[in-house]
């Protein structure tokens, strides 16, 4: 039995410790916001946070997550109140939307570590996430916008 804390909720799961975290989240915990895209850490659609750091859950054995805090898109904020989600909705970033959970989770780490990212910082933080629809220009705009929203929030 493995104990996982996902979005603040503790669960005990009986699975092969080598099973990728992605499938535990999707198939055992019903958290389907985290997506399967490539299974080999190429596309970033499965990005979640492990103790605050972004990981590709499709290649992360569930054993690595045992006892750590896992945050998925469902835990970023369900009510779209996170500055990134506010910016994403304001700019209408998604098209098909399939990659966007991963994009948002990657962007969340970027903004936490760099509240005022330049375009180059965005390139450094976001290049692990593929968007087949080509929403990159809007992702860039939305990250800048989220940074501004965060700054406004602090100055208030």
């Amino acid at each position: 039995m493995l104990t996982l804390v996902v979005n603040g909720k503790r669960s005990s799961i009986d699975v092969d410790p080598d099973m990728p975290l992605l499938w535990v989240l999707r198939e055992h915990l019903g958290l389907t916001g985290t997506k399967y895209g490539c299974g080999m850490a190429q596309c970033g659609a499965c990005t979640v946070h492990l103790d605050g750091e972004a990981v590709r859950s499709c290649v992360t054995p569930v054993s690595r997550a045992a006892g750590k805090n896992v945050t998925t898109i469902e835990g970023l904020s369900a009510d779209l109140s996170h500055p990134l989600q506010r910016a994403w909705t304001e700019i209408d970033v998604p098209q098909c939307g399939y990659c966007q959970s991963g994009q948002l989770m990657a962007a969340a780490v970027l903004l936490r570590e760099n509240p005022h990212p330049s375009d180059a910082d965005i390139d450094d933080g976001m290049a692990g996430n593929i968007c087949r629809c080509g929403t990159y220009p809007r992702i860039r705009r939305a990250i800048h916008r989220a940074a501004a929203l965060m700054a406004e929030g602090k100055s208030r």
Partner: peptide
């Protein structure tokens, strides 16, 4: 006009067939 599907695509609730259980 803002897209009607944007919110569900920003919090993981949009359902694709791969998400059906």
């Amino acid at each position: 006009v803002h897209r009607l599907d944007t919110p569900a695509k920003c919090n993981g609730t949009a359902t694709y067939s791969i998400d059906v259980n």
